[in-house]
Design a protein around this nucleic acid. Structure first.
Lengths: 195, 195
DNA sequence: GTCTATATTACGATAGAC
DNA sequence: GTCTATCGTAATATAGAC
């Protein structure tokens, strides 16, 4: 776990290291000692850059949440037929998950033991509700299948999308769009061949 | 077997309490002190029943894994057309998730810091591979859409199914089949209305 | 900015009384 | 079976030298 690195740290560069360790060991399972070993500096040097463990968590989940909420403000999410907006938000959410993978991973694993964690859970719920409203509008248009409840469909859709953080690892480069396409095809078209 | 309220604990009744606390606070975020408060007995009394925190985790994830693997041995999972077997396993997995909710929830949140956790992750991977093989067979039969990779489809399918533990809470009683049906419809038929 | 040394608290686990 | 008391360790965080 000793990943030496000899430039001086800033809160941001330290965050990169910390989030990686948080995701490997879990936030609660990570001690300041673990972080110091991974960063290659002493515990007390970490306290020079940030107030403590929780500040690192707050910075990380903030970045993830900013990325997700930004999607909801994009033109593709606010204009056009509701079902197309849902598809757009789904595709873009996949892209944000992949682009900000470590940060979103941490966000999605937050439990709620501290104030920061509860704030993160609250903002996640807010995001979910915004998307649920979109699906509701699409259902009202008759563009979504009527035999699955809207709230349930939202949860299943984003359960599928969010599960990316459990296995996706970045490689070459241009696979982001392909992945987003596959997710959208499966979520909206289903797994079976057309009968 | 009768499950009347006991005045003293057994490893099993203690497990019920422990798993609930683990799921609320996270395994790493739960101390023996937390467990003793929740159980209403002292820390040392817990050590009379179990060897420690990790034994409680091992018992819990074992129960979850047993339930999941049992599905793969059922007739519906070993006989018939591959795509129907995949649907069967999907439906039954949802039912096991709901039936053993706290135990499967804990299993799906395991990180890998201890030997028990790594063993659990290993067995989970084994389960995933068994299901992936099923999907591969269904794809070879031409029953699954060919524009989504089999391995990816498996991950998305079970990402969706597993996400149930993040929000499902049991209520009345007979909604288990309805939920399983909805999941199967969405996963195999897709979200959009048939075109 | 980074270090060593340390204060203080919390943790997992045990001893032994009842 | 449950308790109080406690051990040894590891946790977060700070003090102060360089």
């Amino acid at each position: 776990m000793t990943t030496a690195r000899r430039d001086t740290y800033t809160p941001e560069t330290l965050l990169t290291v910390a989030v990686q360790v948080f995701n490997e060991r879990g936030y609660d399972g990570t001690s300041m000692e673990h972080l110091s070993k991974a960063a290659g500096i002493s515990k007390s040097s970490i306290y020079h850059h940030v107030a403590g463990k929780e500040e690192l968590l707050r910075r990380a989940v903030s970045r993830a949440l900013d990325g997700l909420f930004a999607v909801l403000a994009e033109p593709g999410a606010v204009r056009g037929r509701a079902v197309d907006r849902v598809e757009y938000v789904t595709r873009r959410t996949v892209e944000v998950l992949v682009g900000e993978l470590p940060y979103v991973t941490l966000l999605l694993r937050v439990r709620g033991n501290t104030l920061t964690e509860r704030w993160a859970l609250e903002r996640r719920r807010e995001f979910d509700h915004r998307v649920a409203d979109l699906l509701k509008a699409a259902a009202a248009d008759g563009d979504l299948r009527s035999d699955v409840d809207t709230r349930l469909a939202t949860r299943l859709l984003f359960g599928m999308v969010n599960s990316l953080v459990e296995w996706y690892r970045p490689h070459s480069g241009g696979d982001r769009d392909q992945l987003a396409d596959a997710v959208v095809r499966m979520a909206f078209g289903g797994l079976r061949t057309d009968r």
